[in-house]
Amino acid sequence: MDQQTAIVTGGGRGIGRAIGLELAACGYFVILNYRSGRDAAEQTRDEIRSAGGSAEIMGFDITDAAAAKEAVAEIAAGHDIGVLVNNAGITADGLFVMMPEKDWHDVITTALSGFYNVTKPVLKQMMRKKRGSVVTLSSVSGIRGNRGQANYSAAKAGLIGASKAVSAEVARLGIRVNVVAPGLIETEMIQEAPVDFIKQMIPMARIGRPGEVAKVVRFLCSEDASYITGAVISVDGGMG
């Protein structure tokens, strides 16, 4: 119980994978949540272990409140939860006037209900020890909006608002709640995006790397960020 544990939702691939690797390298026991990508989560866990870190995987759907509550209770029974990274999210892009109702609700539910379902029971554990750090992944789309992503932009903007409100509620209890808003990052989510066109809109004229996001998350989880809460840090090459 001396080693602090970090929970990373959607931790098997992309930015979540990079965050898991980064936090494990800092000494956290990392629990990688996944919903369907078990193979990817296992690969990330094995990579962490090969590098000398500690990690385990845990499959549960963050949109299922009961499953999330049960999972957090199971983790808390054997681990000292010091960090939660809300990384899981999905996209279902399309013009708003043509967007199916399911696409709207699936994206919103995964982001916002997922945040509620996991963060609430984790905060209750952190409040008992009067310390902890919650970092939630938003997006540049949640700050400036993005054509064809009304659902995603709404979800990510909602995470910013929720995080700011929660940060004010738990700050006196020694718990910090912050947001990281990535721009275009080299992950599976941009494989079909017009990358060359989008790069023209990025002042730094390149795509970001998952590790660049992970290092900012690591900073916010550390004591180096002990007086930072309710903040939104963009990692977007200047897009925001």
Results as ranks from 00 to 15, higher is better:
1 M>R: 15
4 Q>M: 15
7 I>R: 02
10 G>L: 14
13 R>E: 01
13 R>D: 02
13 R>G: 00
17 R>I: 06
17 R>A: 04
18 A>M: 07
18 A>Y: 13
19 I>G: 09
19 I>H: 07
19 I>V: 11
22 E>M: 09
23 L>R: 11
24 A>V: 14
25 A>W: 09
29 F>V: 11
36 S>H: 14
39 D>H: 10
41 A>T: 10
43 Q>A: 08
49 R>Y: 04
52 G>I: 04
53 G>Y: 09
54 S>N: 07
57 I>Y: 00
60 F>I: 03
61 D>Q: 10
63 T>A: 02
64 D>H: 06
68 A>N: 12
73 A>L: 05
73 A>K: 15
75 I>H: 00
75 I>L: 01
77 A>T: 09
82 G>A: 08
87 N>G: 07
90 I>L: 07
90 I>M: 04
91 T>L: 11
93 D>W: 07
94 G>M: 13
98 M>L: 14
99 M>Q: 12
108 I>T: 03
119 T>Q: 08
119 T>V: 07
121 P>K: 09
123 L>S: 01
125 Q>G: 04
127 M>A: 10
128 R>M: 06
130 K>S: 05
130 K>F: 07
130 K>Q: 12
130 K>I: 02
130 K>T: 03
135 V>R: 02
135 V>N: 01
138 S>T: 14
145 G>R: 04
147 R>M: 12
152 Y>G: 08
153 S>M: 14
166 V>H: 01
166 V>Q: 01
176 R>N: 03
180 V>G: 00
181 A>Q: 12
182 P>L: 05
185 I>A: 01
187 T>I: 03
189 M>E: 05
190 I>A: 15
192 E>T: 08
195 V>S: 06
198 I>G: 11
200 Q>M: 05
203 P>S: 04
204 M>P: 01
210 P>F: 00
214 A>N: 11
215 K>A: 15
216 V>T: 12
220 L>C: 09
221 C>S: 11
223 E>F: 09
228 I>R: 02
233 I>A: 00
239 M>L: 14
